[in-house]
Design a protein around this nucleic acid. Sequence first.
DNA 1: TATATTTGCTACCCAAAGCGTAGCGAATCT
DNA 2: AGATTCGCTACGCTTTGGGTAGCAAATATA
Lengths: 115, 115
Amino acid sequence: MPAQVPIPGQPVRGSKSGKPIMALFDLLGRSWALGVLWQLSEGGLTFRALQDRCEMVSPTVLNRRLKELSASGLVARGEDGYALTEAGQELYALLRPFGPWAQSWAAMLNGMDRD
Amino acid sequence: MPAQVPIPGQPVRGSKSGKPIMALFDLLGRSWALGVLWQLSEGGLTFRALQDRCEMVSPTVLNRRLKELSASGLVARGEDGYALTEAGQELYALLRPFGPWAQSWAAMLNGMDRD
DNA sequence: TATATTTGCTACCCAAAGCGTAGCGAATCT
DNA sequence: AGATTCGCTACGCTTTGGGTAGCAAATATA
């Protein structure tokens, strides 16, 4: 049985109720899911290109994530490889502020326990 | 060797460069990390209460996530159990819009391939 | 004070997910 | 034709996650 894709409305890892937010967290809480969305934000990438951008992802996992993200309507394969769908772009828009926030978070962490 | 906590600036799962966003994605891309932040948004919860809210989390994993999130300065233990730190609340603020978005995403998915 | 309950875990062990490497068939370049 | 690139899949190993049991400390109860 192949890996299950979390679909809102159906029980998923971590939620019998299948609440959409839990299905989403299940989907995004898998290795490289967030990273893939992030890398695809600037435009379509081929499988290999994506693999290169994500330095340490194995083709096995990348392929699994791409299938899941496709089944969830966030990513689709087009002319220029894999790209975000409209929904994927919406989600990325929500994700984008994480970039700058991560910067200040890093600064804070360095300040509090470095040296 | 205990589980490694992704710290920005140091190589993490998925990034030799240790880019903050990658460290963050590594941290959040683990089972229940997002769910825990979500559940703690409304106030502090004891370990057991948190465990109940997250219906299907084992104490093993919950404890691991809490340690990681604590080490990352997003969660801390206080009077009333575990609670979001200031940084955790900032991150939650970025996360909150995912709730409504997940709703419309669910609606879209049901519309496109159900029946 | 003794007992019972709750809390915050840890140990243990099995299952699932992830990783690394190799490589294959199809398409594209030379 | 030969070489390279592309999108994967197979395989075996390591890491992570999950389920259950249970323990020591704190708190409630008698």
